[in-house]
């Protein structure tokens, strides 16, 4: 629409080109540093790169080796456990808190501020706080024992079967308030009239929520899912700060795997292959989402 206006204001070439000139550095940066780099890493995943990039092609070898490495299997299993629990618990907790907060609560703003502040923190800070709080030697276990319950035991963070759940605990703590805010915004957008009508028909509060309110929150669920899934796949800092990927490799996730294989184990080809898998899984979630959002806007 502003195209016509541009034309009216003169045939001056510079004038027409100026907006594109202004946009072009950003576009160039993104084309090189996002898409060019993606292609480069993708290419490396088919090469014999070890400590430095090398350009001898080896076909799918890195991928087949990647999927035969035990640590990658653990990372994938952990991502499935962590990701699904993280998404489900955040959504359930977020929705529950949003519904509770939507009941004309006094000091709602204050409570919301408390629920959401972890989102402002670095995962390294969150990891540090939870690392020592969950540490059996000084944290929760030691505290409860010092209160007189001598046999109380909570050693998940040291237990290679349970450690991944401590990551869930800390990650849920950090993000659930944000999911609450998303659902609260959704709740505030629901039409009152439908609810009133259903209530006149004698529907109970429970069925009002189950039959009318929650189904209308579908867009909020979609957004929450996309945000949480993408955060789960990218999770790196929290694991590093909380468990360092341990005990052993018990809390390895794809992001930590990629880093250690590329930069400390000098298996850059395999590292690049793992990064490619990460990108594919995020793209599978984000591309349809961005596509639909941009189409709606048109």
């Amino acid at each position: 629409m502003s195209m016509t206006a541009t034309r009216r204001s003169g045939n001056d070439w510079l004038r027409d080109a100026l907006p594109k000139i202004v946009l072009s550095p950003s576009l160039a940066i993104v084309l090189v540093f996002v898409y060019g780099f993606i292609l480069f890493t993708f290419y490396l995943s088919f090469t014999d790169s070890r400590i430095l990039p090398s350009y001898g092609l080896v076909g799918w070898q890195n991928y087949s080796r990647l999927f035969s490495v035990r640590a990658w299997g653990i990372a994938i299993d952990n991502l499935l456990i962590f990701g699904s629990l993280y998404i489900v618990i955040c959504c359930v907790l977020g929705l529950a808190l949003a519904i509770l907060l939507d009941q004309k609560i006094r000091a709602e703003g204050f409570i919301r501020t408390i629920y959401l502040y972890p989102m402002a923190l670095s995962f390294i800070v969150t990891g540090t706080a939870w690392k020592w709080f969950l540490d059996p030697g000084i944290g929760l276990q030691a505290v409860v024992r010092s209160w007189g319950w001598e046999s109380f035991t909570f050693e998940w963070i040291k237990d290679s079967h349970m450690a991944i759940y401590t990551i869930v605990i800390a990650a849920v703590w950090q993000t659930s308030g944000f999911v609450m805010a998303m659902f609260l915004a959704g709740l505030r957008g629901i039409d009152n009239e439908v609810l009133k009508a259903a209530q006149i028909d004698g529907a109970s509060n429970w069925s009002l929520y189950r039959r009318i309110v929650i189904p209308q929150l579908r867009p909020a669920f979609m957004s929450a899912f996309v945000v949480l899934a993408h955060m789960a796949i990218k999770s790196y800092d929290l694991v590093i700060a909380l468990t360092g990927g341990g005990p052993g490799t018990a809390t390895e996730l794809p992001a930590t795997f990629m880093y250690s294989y590329t930069f400390t184990r000098n298996q850059m080809g395999i590292g690049a292959a793992s990064a490619t898998i990460m990108l594919m899984s995020i793209a599978a979630i984000m591309v349809p989402y961005i596509w639909s959002e941009l189409r709606e806007k048109k």
Binding site: L31, F33, V34, T41, P53, Y259, A272, T276, M278, A283
Partner: peptide
């Protein structure tokens, strides 16, 4: 859309070339 997708890529994908 190109700019937007760049926000969400896993940065592991750009670490080596960067």
């Amino acid at each position: 859309g190109l700019l937007l997708f760049g926000c969400f890529i896993p940065f592991q994908m750009v670490l080596i070339p960067m």
